[in-house]
Computed example of a mutant assay.
Amino acid sequence: MTVLTKSVVTGMTREQYEKTAAALIDQLRATPGFIAHYAWEHEGGMTVVEVWESAEQHDDWFDNNVKPHLPVEVNPEKHELANKVTA
């Protein structure tokens, strides 16, 4: 089931995010199940939303590649999508 994940990373600056993203983006694009990634800065941190083919694929990627780079513990929200339309 396709899932949308949302991670709020309190205390992460835009510069920290950009450094981490630059190191991981090519690998992320090549990871099975990855569909989309969006990020924005908010007061006090960064928010990252991703779309994956399954929660398991997201969790494997997140636990092994993203978590080690985060300044705080993050537990992404997961939402099963009822529909997905792309260009």
Rank of each mutant, 00 (worst) to 15 (best):
M1H: 06
M1W: 01
T2Q: 09
V3E: 06
V3L: 05
T5S: 14
S7G: 05
V8F: 03
T10R: 06
T10W: 00
G11P: 00
G11K: 10
M12G: 15
T13P: 09
T13D: 03
E15R: 14
E15N: 11
E15I: 14
Q16L: 10
Q16D: 12
Y17P: 08
Y17L: 15
Y17F: 15
E18R: 14
E18P: 02
K19M: 12
T20F: 07
T20W: 12
A21V: 08
A22V: 08
A22Y: 04
A23C: 04
A23T: 04
I25C: 07
D26V: 01
D26T: 14
Q27H: 11
Q27W: 02
L28P: 02
L28Q: 08
L28C: 07
A30F: 01
G33D: 12
G33H: 07
F34S: 05
F34W: 13
F34T: 06
I35D: 04
A36Q: 07
H37Y: 13
H37E: 06
A39P: 05
A39V: 12
A39I: 10
E41D: 12
E41G: 02
H42D: 07
E43L: 13
E43R: 12
G44P: 15
G45F: 02
G45S: 14
G45I: 02
G45R: 00
G45Q: 11
M46Y: 01
M46K: 07
M46G: 07
M46L: 10
T47Y: 00
T47M: 02
T47E: 02
T47H: 00
V48C: 01
V49N: 11
E50D: 15
E50I: 08
E53P: 03
A55L: 13
A55R: 13
A55E: 15
A55D: 14
A55S: 14
Q57M: 11
D59S: 13
D60M: 11
D60R: 12
W61G: 09
F62I: 02
D63W: 04
N64G: 09
N64F: 03
N64C: 06
V66M: 15
V66Y: 05
V66C: 07
K67V: 14
P68F: 07
P68A: 10
P68Y: 03
P68K: 11
H69R: 13
L70A: 12
P71H: 10
P71K: 08
P71A: 02
V72D: 09
V72I: 15
V72Q: 11
V72K: 10
E73N: 09
E73G: 03
N75T: 15
P76M: 11
P76Q: 14
E77C: 06
E77W: 14
K78Q: 15
H79Q: 04
E80S: 09
E80M: 03
E80I: 04
L81N: 02
L81A: 09
A82E: 01
A82W: 00
N83G: 01
T86W: 01
T86K: 05
A87V: 05
